[in-house]
Design a protein around this nucleic acid. Structure first.
Length: 411
RNA sequence: CGGGCUGUGGCGCAGUUGGUAGCGCGCGUCGUUUGGGACGAUGAGGCCGUGAGUUCAAGUCUCACCAGCCCGACCA
């Protein structure tokens, strides 16, 4: 991509009303733009990151047996009445039709859709278990949207639903998901702590994946032994003896919830009479689990954790481009070498942003740091005199002059 | 939803006792620059959040509404 032709350019200043680090940096660098409170547009750069996160999530969900599908965001009122959540869920967006007075819900979650769907295909024990997931925009009428893309009214989420013959199988899959989730967050460069949490009205127990950072909205209590619990259900407080290992001391942290897993039991299968016939011909209830990852929130959490005073520092796999190419000046040799470089990058399939603008070096460096690609390559008179191009690693700042062919090999 | 605060070019702000809006950044053009956000010249850009009201006259005063931010409550 040519930097000069980018739809969304970087900015020096953004509105001071955006106080969260993720919104500040993502807006300055041209990844997202707020449309209204809690609602963000993902610009070309931002979408590339979102897609990268989605890909990680897809691979892990597929590896855990998940089958991807896509359900509607617009839901019939009746299904929400069936579970009691039409009137019982205060974050539910309700939209009236202009024709005939019908009302719809905008999906904050999809139990009400996936269960009736499953009912059409799950009849026998031979049809179980099943695991389906989707990646889609969710809508929640939050009383107070805040913290940039961490808590919006419309956001991207992966939700997986599992269907089981009994409680044991449900619990067994819960553990499979724990591993899958752990993989996802590790691959996204996050240390997410598996934390016991309340299931709310939805299940008897659940686990949240919490990323410790100052900007987090949740409070969790942890011990070095691995004990971790959300304050919502905590029976301990900071400084207490750990109830698990009886040795450690409980610490308190602010954290961002980037994912959660629930055992739903029959909470949603019962209202829709989702049942199957077992080996002996008897009707049995289906047990369910559901497992969510806030894709867009995860992107915000990564920025909260991986940044410095100059900008974002993306983990390798998430960056919109692997390499940020800066061409300084337009001397013949410099132009030629830059062309050679990007052709080689094309050839080996390394994604890059090519800053072809005629700006001062400082301005281009500042933008490169802000955008946060893992590798910066400067082509200039000076670098060529020293035998090649200058390669700088964003995270460490390590820099060296290197021959183009050698560099491409290393990337 | 309770409390606090804020709405003036894209962004940050100023605007006095009411008298028809100004600065910096950014943007356009021309020229000079080019290794950490360059400089000069010149130019464009504003239903002062919306609607009522007071007044000869409202960015400025009154009321209502809308939007946004922060704290709290809430939170698959």
């Amino acid at each position: 991509m040519l930097m000069s032709q980018q739809f969304a350019s970087t900015r020096k200043d953004v509105s001071e009303e955006e106080v969260s680090v993720n919104a500040q940096l993502l807006t300055k660098a041209g990844y997202v733009e707020k449309v209204m409170a809690g609602v963000y547009a993902f610009l070309p750069l931002g979408l590339r990151v979102l897609r990268n996160i989605e890909e990680v999530v897809r691979e892990e969900m597929d590896a855990a047996g998940g089958q991807e599908l896509l359900m509607p965001a617009l839901h019939p009122k009746e299904y929400w009445e069936a579970t009691g959540r039409w009137g019982g869920l205060d974050v539910l967006f309700k939209v009236p039709s202009q024709h005939g007075g019908r009302e719809y819900a905008l999906g904050p979650s999809h139990e009400e859709i996936v269960v009736p769907l499953a009912q059409k295909f799950i009849h026998s024990y031979r049809d179980l278990p099943q695991y389906v997931y989707q990646i889609q925009s969710k809508f929640r009428d939050e009383p107070r949207a805040k913290s940039g893309i961490l808590r919006g009214r419309e956001f991207m989420m992966k939700d997986l639903y599992s269907f089981h013959v009994d409680e044991d199988d449900m619990h067994a899959y819960y553990d499979v998901m724990k591993i899958a989730y752990s993989n996802v967050f590790t691959r996204c460069g996050l240390n997410a702590i598996e934390t016991e949490a309340s299931g709310g009205t939805f299940s008897e127990f659940s686990h949240e994946y919490q990323v410790v950072t100052e900007s987090g909205e949740d409070i969790i209590f942890t011990c070095e032994c691995g004990y971790a619990v959300n304050r919502e259900i905590a029976k301990v407080q900071s400084g207490d003896e750990c109830p698990l290992c009886k040795k450690g001391v409980i610490n308190e942290h602010k954290a961002i919830e980037v994912g959660n897993i629930f055992s739903l039991h029959r909470k949603y299968s019962d209202p829709f009479k989702l049942r199957y016939t077992d080996e002996s011909g008897v009707q049995q209830p289906v047990y369910m689990g559901c497992y969510g990852i806030g894709i867009s929130r995860l992107m915000g959490a990564v920025v909260e954790v991986h940044h410095d005073d100059k900008g974002i520092v993306w983990p390798e796999g998430l960056a919109p481009y692997q390499v940020h190419v800066v061409q300084l000046g337009d001397d013949e040799d410099v132009v030629k070498s830059t062309q050679t470089l990007i052709k080689k990058l094309d050839k080996v399939g390394v994604s890059y942003m090519y800053d072809d603008r005629k700006l001062s070096a400082g301005a281009m460096f500042a933008d490169a740091d802000l955008i946060g690609a893992p590798h910066r390559v400067v082509v200039s008179d000076r670098s060529l005199k020293n035998g090649g191009v200058e390669h700088t690693v964003r995270s460490s700042g390590d820099s060296k002059v290197i021959d183009i062919a050698q560099l491409v090999k290393e990337l």
